[in-house]
């Protein structure tokens, strides 16, 4: 059994929405291992984003424990969480969230300014196939291109974990596939743990493990015997 990178023990999260308490997570247990590609599947409101936020150090659970290696994320102060995100986590958003005033290369280089041992931004853009678009601003790029810049930006600081929230949600079919290919390549070549949230069941076929969440609980963890290449996926 490989070493565990993430330990999630009996994690619950309760939000107060006015008068109502919403149980986003109910006693979730989970472990993530080095280099694996995980897909979190579940309907809207199932709690998958809450879990991703907790793994990414954006949120803390109401009860239970989360460890990243020996870092206890449950008890960390906001400044510690910032440092954790800075040093170990890469994020890819559904709507890319690039800095509109910076070019593709600059958006990628931006995070390397705060990282200890970053990759060459140019290399990252090559990895996502954008070496031709280095000096384009976000407004000059298509959605797929912007998302690939976002991936390049996320991996440039050489994170141990890459968290992707619906990375293809805003993209059309061919572009979505292209982005998935890039994620697969990053996972394979850099060995970054990759967690992808999606509605799209087909994407699960490219994962090492598929975790299904429903109503705040993990209902199934399935290990794919044979991973599909993204290019072979159709939806």
């Amino acid at each position: 059994m490989p070493d565990t990178v993430f330990h999630v023990r009996k994690v619950s999260k309760v939000y107060r929405m006015g008068e109502v308490e919403v149980h986003a997570l109910r006693g979730v247990n989970l472990e993530l291992f080095p280099g694996e590609f995980v897909v979190l599947l579940g309907p809207s409101g199932s709690g998958k984003s809450t879990l991703l936020n907790i793994l990414g150090g954006l949120d803390v659970p109401t009860s239970g424990e989360v460890y990243y290696l020996d870092h206890n994320l449950t008890t960390a102060e906001p400044a510690e969480l910032t440092r954790y995100r800075r040093e170990h986590v890469g994020f890819v958003f559904q709507f890319y969230n690039l800095i509109p005033s910076l070019t593709a290369l600059e958006n990628t280089a931006l995070v390397t300014e705060i990282a200890e041992n970053p990759l060459d931004p140019l290399e990252c853009l090559r990895l996502v196939g954008l070496e031709e678009r280095l000096n384009h601003f976000p407004a000059q790029m298509s959605g797929g291109e912007q998302q690939r810049v976002a991936i390049a930006r996320a991996i440039a600081k050489r994170p141990e974990v890459l968290l992707c929230d619906e990375p293809t949600g805003a993209l059309d079919y061919p572009t979505g596939k292209l982005v998935l290919e890039v994620l697969e390549r990053v996972n394979r070549e850099l060995g970054t743990i990759t967690v992808v949230i999606t509605h799209n069941v087909v994407i699960a076929e490219m994962a090492d493990r598929v975790i299904r969440i429903s109503s705040g609980e993990i209902v199934d963890i399935h290990k794919n015997e044979k991973k599909m290449a993204p290019s072979a996926l159709t939806w």
Partner: peptide
């Protein structure tokens, strides 16, 4: 706000 929040998520501190 959106841009700055993204940067926070990426690990930039509030001071930065």
């Amino acid at each position: 706000a959106h841009e700055l929040a993204s940067l926070r998520v990426l690990g930039f501190t509030r001071t930065e």
